[in-house]
């Protein structure tokens, strides 16, 4: 089993390297290079050549990649072209905000989705099952910015319970942070819940046709116990991988929600950086997103291996 886990970790690392190459190559093919981005309108052929020489842009792409990657490994991404501050200083508070919102949404969404999914499996085909399927399908089908605006309209404009802008600063205390980010969190939850809930329901129901489930019924156990104690532990592997995908989405795909609620997260920073040709920031954000995605999926793979009793308890 350890070998299997080791393989997964190694593969994850390899994927991360491949992603970093892609990110580097992506910024490489953008029109204009770092030198022209810095000099912008003041560029003359001579000053460009001089700056390129100074920045080492004349070296082959492979050499520059290794230079960039070896610095990235130790957390050095250089300076932002727009603000001239260290990229790390620029990114750190934004990353903290993004991770906070993602964890907040995950803590609410995962147990809720799994719980709803289990109940849908227990009352399969009933009114509850259909209602919850319909409702979650609806929330996933509506674009997230619309969900956000609808929530703002009701909860902050009409009822005035929550603020419409998630204006947090580094020194906002935790409780008010939770209150300020309630609506963006709810928007994210509504977007990801259907996926996890339907996967829970489907994988539990698939297990429900196993002979050992029939045996559990023949032992006189009530249905809720059969679903939760006998079916669910055997159904977790596919659920874990869907949860990981959704968690990754919560970190990587929240730009729209950040814009709607004017939340200072990483997604917004990246969008700004792209429009300003701020290449070091774009590269750093890209790498963080890739790392989050790969890390979460790797964790899901490892958990799925651990959830298999045959691997956990060898003969």
């Amino acid at each position: 089993m350890l070998r299997l886990i080791g393989q997964r970790l190694g593969l994850g690392l390899l994927t991360l390297v491949a992603a970093s190459v892609l990110i580097f190559a992506g910024t490489e093919v953008l029109p204009g290079d770092l030198a022209s981005a810095i000099l912008q309108n003041t560029a003359t052929p001579e000053s460009l050549a001089e700056l390129r020489q100074e920045l080492g842009l004349n070296r082959p792409a492979a050499v520059r990649y290794f230079d960039w990657a070896s610095h990235a490994v130790v957390g050095e991404f250089g300076r932002s072209l727009a603000s001239h501050r260290e990229v790390v200083v620029e990114i750190a508070p934004r990353l903290r905000n993004t991770l906070f919102l993602a964890s907040y949404a995950a803590i609410v969404a995962v147990p809720l989705a799994v719980g709803l999914g289990l109940m849908a499996a227990i009352w399969q085909g009933g009114v509850y099952d259909r209602a919850v399927n319909f409702a979650t399908l609806l929330t996933i089908s509506v674009p997230e910015y619309l969900v956000g605006y609808i929530l703002i309209k009701y909860f902050s404009v009409r009822l005035g319970w929550f603020p419409s802008l998630a204006n947090v600063t580094p020194d906002t205390p935790l409780l008010s942070r939770i209150w300020l980010t309630f609506l963006p969190m709810l928007t994210l939850v509504l977007v990801v819940i259907a996926h996890m809930m339907r996967m829970t329901r489907a994988s539990v129901l698939q297990i429900m046709s196993s002979p050992y489930i029939e045996m559990a019924f023949l032992k006189g156990l009530p249905k809720w116990r059969v679903v939760i104690r006998h079916a669910f532990p055997n159904a977790v592997a596919p659920i874990i991988s869907v949860v990981a995908l959704d968690l990754a989405y919560l970190i990587v795909g929240v730009v729209v929600v950040e814009v709607v609620f004017v939340y200072p997260g990483l997604g917004q920073l990246m969008v700004d950086a792209v429009s300003k040709h701020d290449v070091p920031v774009v590269q750093a954000c890209g790498l963080i997103f890739a790392a989050a995605f790969i890390l979460l999926n790797m964790a899901a793979d490892v958990l799925a291996i651990l959830s298999n009793p045959r691997l956990r308890h060898p003969r």
Binding site: P211, E214, F217, P233
Partner: peptide
Amino acid sequence: RRALRGASIAYIAQSAAASFNPAM
């Protein structure tokens, strides 16, 4: 009926390998 199953009338299936829960 549930109270009867397992307690008063018990069942032994063809394939024990398939009828035991692998996770317990």
